[in-house]
Design a protein around this nucleic acid. Sequence first.
DNA 1: GCGGTCAGTCCAGAATCTGGACGGACTCAT
DNA 2: ATGAGTCCGTCCAGATTCTGGACTGACCGC
Lengths: 147, 147
Amino acid sequence: MAAPTEPRACSIARTLEVVGEKWALLAVREVFLGNRRFDEMVRRTGAPRDTLTARLRTLVDSGVLQRRRYSDHPQRFEYHLTAAGRELYPVVLTLLRWGDEHLAGPDGPPLILEHDCGHRLIPEVSCQACGEVVEPADVTRRFPMSS
Amino acid sequence: MAAPTEPRACSIARTLEVVGEKWALLAVREVFLGNRRFDEMVRRTGAPRDTLTARLRTLVDSGVLQRRRYSDHPQRFEYHLTAAGRELYPVVLTLLRWGDEHLAGPDGPPLILEHDCGHRLIPEVSCQACGEVVEPADVTRRFPMSS
DNA sequence: GCGGTCAGTCCAGAATCTGGACGGACTCAT
DNA sequence: ATGAGTCCGTCCAGATTCTGGACTGACCGC
């Protein structure tokens, strides 16, 4: 028998299980932008209603969003970010930056963000310990991992 | 006629069109980890061969990976990151961190990275201009965008 | 009452993903 | 020179998922 080598246990894979389905991160994006209602999300993302229904359900189930009633008589709900959901902000920002740099049209990026420091926000990934910007070459695995 | 409101033009959506399909980012992860060959990626990711074939093709077509021949007689190829591909590192790191924090089992994160500064790498997103860690509350849209 | 908004559900067809088997072109050990 | 093993796919049919269009039900404002 050859070595089938288990698929790697990996936080990236696990994260993608939660937010990697189509439309999931776009729904999260809308909530970050302040659009918390179903119809608005459908319009802004372009997702099919059924798909968005399913996505919102799994995001709520996995603790990224919270479904909050804002009207009783016609039952109406809004989706809010949980603490875990808010921590997806770095993911959203890095995806945004990559698209800005590699897929922008002639008009430039369609959405410009401004940081409270007064400058246009260009997100970078840095090391918490030393504050330096992280490059692939500066990173090694602490445990090279068997095989 | 109501306002159907076009789906938002958005760099996040565009990025996800390239790397948002199932397995795409796991293939990229493997290349970052140094596994550049087809069979190795199949084993390490768990993706079906057909799916991986398709994913690698779109990643090559969209300029994230480069398919490089490393053997002639039995034609054999390796997949290398392009410059654009290497710039996905921040995306990969932020996904990794979220998984580490929210989906790790009792043994802790399955993969520990070390930064050249000597400490365990905990990736953060910071503002290029001021270096501060970015929080959702510190960011505004520069052009609130019509409608 | 009539039209509009909101948050979905229902459904059937389209697109995608999946795993298992198969192929060709090698290499290496026996 | 066989036979086993590796490597990189392809082929296919069945399962899963996505898709869009229509529909519901409860409101609101005029």
